[in-house]
Amino acid sequence: MATQHSRSAARLMMAPAVILLLGWMLVPLTMTLYFSFKKFLPLRGDSLGNGLEWVGLENYSRFVGSSSFWPSVQATLIIVGSVLVITVVLGTLLALLLDQPMWGQGIVRILVITPFFVMPTVSGLVWKNMFMDPINGILAHLFKFFGAQPLEWLSQASMQSIIMIVSWQWLPFATLILLTAIQSLDSEQLEASEMDGAPVLKRFWHIILPHMSRAITVVILIQTIFLLSIFAEIFVTTAGAFGTKTLTYLIFQRVLESQNVGLGSAGGVYAIILANIVAIFLMRIVGKNLDR
């Protein structure tokens, strides 16, 4: 429903954003793909100028063959999955609570939202030192107070610690989106179900939860995008040690620490494939929800 004028204007006005993103996607992607078939060790004098040696699929097989590969995929999926479950479940409960009448709701909302503003490097460092330090951390004090042996969080329970830190960062996001969804629920619908004599739990299951499904989808989509690439939290806490090496981190180490660009690029291609599998799955859901 538009004229030729507005349609051509629309194409013109969409062009900058589309072209920029297309370039941003295609140029580095092509380069990564190219490097992944090459031996490329900048520290040993390899450079684009001198020409790179073609090594076929060697980088790919070496990357998968490395003992760190599968654990890193596993670590990635465990972190993303756990954080999603924790934030969605706790977020739903918290949202239900915040929807109840209370004094100082605005202030509680501010308290809850605040972790979202904290940059990942800061939250990583604060948790690592002031909370999880086995001698001087708050959690150590707390354990000692109850007569327990303080835990060396980041080495003994490294995954749990990372998951805890990341969940703390993302819980506000989940809570607020879910709260918005709950608040938009037509109260007449709830009242009608109350009139019908539905008990609280049934009401939650059959009315509130379906109403929130779209919001939950959004939470999962957005969080997955960000969680797949978490970096700083690991960078400043365990630096990938103690089984917390995610795929992102493994590639980072290959490229920047051991300066093996070819190998790292092959890893990058794997990461892109993993992300795409997740993306296709998510886009299906979101695409469906967009129509509504």
Binding site: A2, S6, R7, A9, A10, M14, A17, V18, L21, W24, M25, V27, P28, L29, M31, T32, F35, T224, I225, L228, S229, F231, L247, T248, I251, F252, V255, L256, V261, G264, S265, G267, G268, V269, A271, I272, L274, A275, N276, V278, A279, M283, V286, G287, L290
Partner: peptide, 30 residues
């Protein structure tokens, strides 16, 4: 996208969002 939607609008939107899923580390060196 909002006012002159075409059949491809939704695809373009989803494609844009999917570029966000591109793992940054995969393209770091380039």
């Amino acid at each position: 996208m909002a006012f002159v939607p075409s059949k491809r609008t939704k695809d373009i939107l989803l494609w844009m969002l999917s570029t966000k899923m591109l793992p940054a580390v995969g393209v770091l060196y380039p």
